[in-house]
Design a protein around this nucleic acid. Structure first.
Length: 740
DNA sequence: TCAAACATAAACAAGC
DNA sequence: CGCTTGTTTATGTTTG
């Protein structure tokens, strides 16, 4: 039912005007069904939950409002503003929890740095309060206030809540497990926190909170589920949330999200209410204070527990003779007693699960905060040209990446996801050269567009190293970090041409319509979910400008294909360094080098396919489509060698590496050969290698040999953050569907 | 310093 | 008329 996955972005403006905007029709229905519509005559039935929801929603709105008001953000272009800055919260998420801020939203808020930590805490606490209240005391309390509310309904409500919570838990559990699996698969478990940018993305799942060790996570779940991972499975509820579509992160865990929407449903009350500013946040204060304290205690406990665990072999929830269960603190003489207490008082029940959930959020929140702070530190250091930060990177692998990558001197920092990679050195420091903006903000959100800044790194960096014949990625960063780019608002270090080519190659038929290319961009890179007008224009510009992109008339219309030959030519030229030579003597000279490079590139590029959407990637088990190598190479023959730090390579997770499939190599060769032949004859000619050019009638083929374009370098750097305001719409609305 | 490669903007035109 | 798709031109940045 709630699957109208049609993801929609929540428009801030709309939010502010009408809280319901975030609700799906189904939710609305539910709301009306429950008879809680505020306007309705049945208003008398307002339940406690509803009140709580109202509060919650108000808080949420306040937060959103704040987001909107963020300086420099959406004010710029009033025009499309509403569409643009919206929190990119997929409906699936948004609708689920009108009252409760989802982790994604929280993250986004954090990312935008709109709210102070205190404010965030307040919000979080409010959420906690709501959840706990919902769980613990259903209606009771408020009943008094609402004489009309019927006990029965409340009970029903409570029951529903339970069910929902269970579902939620189950879902979360699944997601968590999935995530863990993914992480393990990619060897990312050790990773620290979520990349800063990631947080904001909709589809993002909750990353295992950086600080949590797998063990902790497991423990957490164990606690929640009562030790058996399936505690609530009997519900038999399915969770589509994270389906493959989500790329694993699918719905992300919106922890609490749903429960709210669920039964309580009444999102209504809030809807009409205009955004309350900060005050709204204060509304829930009373409970908040308590919770805050509780939370602080929790944190302490966490710390303590971590210490104790190791030493005494005690239980993580037991320390100093006290039960460390959030909000408990019961004194237990000995461990045995503690165990008893634990089993009796904190058994698997709705309350415990709710607490667990809250705890998860708390942890997540803290981690996000931590990431933020780290990032900030990085930015500061970068700004000050301090190198010191580098060393430390080791401990904190992730974050910086995004912003850092920009540094021209350094290879693109390995994306956060690469745990192993030593990348560190690279990153940080170099300030973004000319970028005044604060790179750090990774969200990119803050950086004003600087106009024509160039964001790419020197090609060499992007080139992979071929380590002894092993594959390497051309885009070390990406392949392994497919998820990263997909979720983090970090500009991918590739040129538009490279990306476009990748998009086309990734397609089943190696041809895409413009719109499909757009979709690929948004689907594959979080970064392109913003400033659509800008990058779309760039995409069109590149398509038209580069000869390697051929427009073909298709049955349906026009589609774009890649002329590998052209692409290769480019590369060769680039590689050889003497375009003229290549151009004129394609075969001979250029070829040799080109070939070489191509091959390497092919190998390396195999990784590129990874970029492709998961689905596409699947085509080849390894994922790599045959991707013929992109031009990446182009960039760099030289780059290949010197380029990327060893770390990058090594780091890439096995899966990602897709060793270059023979196919690729083959195709690469073929292409090269073919290209040469053709070149000899036509000079340009030829249709692109089979693979890429479907038997379509080519409407227009620019055969000129100009060499203008086909950019090969892949490297654009990341940082450019589009304007924050990104007024440009996130037209993602449409795209987002793909994402999810 | 310069040329090339890129990014970004924007003007325009053609189609729908 | 508005939007999408394409093409072009202009300008600025980065890199080798």
């Amino acid at each position: 039912m709630m699957q109208e996955s049609a993801t929609e972005t929540i428009s801030n403006s709309s939010m502010s005007q009408n809280g319901m905007s975030t609700l799906s029709s189904s939710q609305l229905e539910a709301g009306s069904r429950d008879g809680r519509s505020s306007a309705g005559d049945t208003s008398s039935e307002v339940s406690t939950v509803e009140l709580l929801h109202l509060q919650q929603q108000q808080a949420l709105q306040a937060a959103r409002q704040l987001l909107l008001q963020q300086p420099g953000s959406g004010l710029k272009s009033p025009k499309s503003q509403d569409k643009q800055r919206p929190l990119q919260v997929p409906v699936s998420v948004a609708m689920m929890s009108p009252q409760v801020i989802t982790p994604q939203q929280m993250q986004q808020i954090l990312q935008q740095q709109v709210l102070s930590p205190q404010q965030l805490q307040a919000l979080l606490q409010q959420q906690q309060a709501v959840m706990l209240q919902q769980v613990r005391k259903p209606p009771a309390r408020v009943v008094d206030l609402l004489p009309t509310s019927s006990q029965q309904q409340q009970q029903q409500l409570a029951a529903q809540q339970l069910v929902f919570q269970q579902q939620l838990l189950q879902m979360q559990q699944l997601q968590q497990q999935q995530h863990l699996l993914n992480m393990q698969r990619q060897g990312l478990l050790s990773l620290p926190g979520p990349a800063p940018g990631q947080a904001a993305l909709p589809g993002q799942t909750l990353q295992p909170p950086a600080g949590l060790s797998p063990a902790e996570l497991q423990q957490l779940w164990k606690d929640v589920t009562g030790g058996n991972g399936h505690g609530m499975e009997d519900n038999g509820i399915k969770h589509n949330s994270s389906g493959s579509t989500g790329g694993g992160n699918g719905g992300g865990l919106d922890l609490s999200t749903n429960n709210s929407s669920s039964t309580t449903s009444s999102s209504n009350p809030a809807k009409a209410s205009p955004p309350l500013s900060h005050h709204s946040i204060a509304n829930g204060q009373s409970p908040i204070l308590n919770h805050r304290r509780e939370r602080e205690r929790e944190r302490e406990r966490e710390r303590e527990s971590s210490l104790h665990e190791e030493s005494g072999g005690t239980h993580p929830l037991y320390g100093h003779g006290v039960c460390k269960w959030p909000g408990c603190e019961k004194l237990c003489e000995d461990f045995g007693q503690f165990l008893k207490h634990l089993n009796s008082e904190h058994a698997l029940d709705d309350r415990s699960t709710a607490q667990c959930r809250v705890q998860m959020q708390v942890v997540q929140q803290l981690e996000i905060q931590l990431s933020k702070e780290r990032e900030r530190l990085q930015a500061m250091m970068a700004h000050l040209h301090m190198r010191p930060s580098e060393p430390k990177s080791s401990p904190k692998p992730l974050n910086l990446v995004s912003s850092v990558t920009m540094s021209k001197n350094l290879p693109p920092a390995s994306p956060p996801n690469l745990p192993q990679t030593p990348t560190t050195p690279t990153a940080p420091i170099t300030p973004m050269a000319a970028m005044p903006q604060v790179p750090s903000v990774l969200g990119g959100a803050n950086v004003p567009s600087m106009g024509a800044m160039r964001r790419r790194h020197s090609d060499k960096y992007s080139m992979p190293l071929s380590s002894g014949g092993d594959t390497v990625f051309i885009f070390p960063e990406i392949a392994p970090n497919y998820e990263f780019y997909k979720n983090a608002d970090v500009r991918p270090p590739f040129t538009y041409a490279t990306l476009i080519r990748q998009a086309i190659i990734d397609s089943a038929e190696h041809q895409l319509t413009l719109n499909e290319i757009y979709s690929w961009f948004t689907r594959t890179f979080a970064y392109f979910r913003r400033n659509a007008a800008t990058w779309k224009n760039a995409v069109r510009h590149n398509l038209s400008l580069h000869k390697c992109f051929v427009r073909v008339e298709n049955v349906k219309g026009a589609v774009w294909t890649v002329d590998e030959v052209e692409y290769q030519k480019r590369r060769s030229q680039k590689i050889t360094g003497s375009p003229s030579l290549v151009k004129n003597l394609p075969s001979s000279l250029g070829y040799g080098t080109a070939l070489n490079a191509s091959l390497q590139a092919a190998l390396a590029e195999t990784s590129l396919p990874l970029l492709g959407t998961p689905g596409l990637m699947n085509s080849g088990s390894t994922g790599p489509m045959g991707g013929s190598c992109h031009g990446l190479l182009g960039g760099d023959a030289s780059g290949l060698l010197g380029g990327s730090p060893p770390g990058l390579l090594g780091g890439s997770p096995p899966g990602m590496l897709s060793g270059s499939p023979p196919m690729l190599m083959q195709s690469a060769h073929e292409e090269l050969n073919g290209s040469l032949d053709h070149l000899d004859t036509n000079g340009h000619g030829i249709l692109p290698p089979l693979e890429y050019l479907p038997p379509i009638h080519v409407k227009e083929e620019p055969l000129n040999m100009d060499d203008d374009d086909c950019p090969m370098s892949l490297v654009t750097t990341a940082n450019h953050s589009p304007e924050l305001d990104d007024d440009r719409e996130l037209e993602e609305g449409n795209l987002s569907e793909d994402l999810e």
